[in-house]
Design a protein around this nucleic acid. Structure first.
Lengths: 108, 108
DNA sequence: AGTAAAGTTAAGCCTTTGCTTAACTATATT
DNA sequence: AATATAGTTAAGCAAAGGCTTAACTTTACT
């Protein structure tokens, strides 16, 4: 990922870490503070911050600070875009399989 | 990713690279040889091999060698599993939004 | 005012990733 | 048999990733 990764690059990279996927799973149930996200994790707070930054620069998550607590929420948009990429590839792949089966039945 | 990444970890990691996503896009249209995959890419063959290995150990792709040409094909299964993970998260997220809107209309 | 709570930043360390070139193996072609 | 084709392995390097501890800032509580 040498030169300026695209949003999709970042989103999939963010998704590749189980800690971050865990955070997303938590956030899919509703917003949470940084410490709420950190609580179940066996890593230091600064490590959590870094994961959070990965999620945020990928667009999968957004946050705002009020007083001393930062509230993080899931961003459905980026999630959908990653999903769509996969969905398109799967659809092309299935379409090709269908054509292949048609071909088989023709020569039968 | 210190300890033995899960298949899902590997799949998303594989998807995070635009070169590999390009290969998958090509393969979604049908199988291809290593050199066919390499042709449009501005990188060396060994580099392509490494990308291929990332795709293969993630389960997104499988290959077999016949004579001197290795034919690579997409594996729909791994693709679907990544897609499903995202889909579940999006569904939970949407369900929560719906409950939230219901709540709003109740107090109105 | 003094202390606790919630984040944040910086520095350093080790591993993993993505790439290269060079050298090599195994099939096809002529 | 000689040469070309298709892929593979190995070594090495620079950058990115994931973690830590230490030090600091900004609110909130007593």
């Amino acid at each position: 990922m040498l030169n300026d990764p695209s949003p999709l690059d970042r989103a999939f990279a963010a998704l590749s870490d189980p800690v971050r996927r865990g955070m997303l799973a938590r956030l899919s149930l509703g917003p949470a503070s940084v410490s709420e996200l950190a609580k179940p994790l066996p890593i230091s707070l600064p490590a959590v911050m870094q994961h959070l930054r990965a999620l945020e620069t990928s667009g999968l998550v957004a946050s705002q600070k009020k007083g001393r607590v930062r509230t993080v929420r899931l961003e459905g948009r980026a999630l959908s875009e990653a999903e769509s990429w996969l969905s398109r590839r799967r659809q092309e792949w299935e379409a090709r399989l269908d054509r292949f089966e048609d071909h088989l039945s023709e020569i039968k």
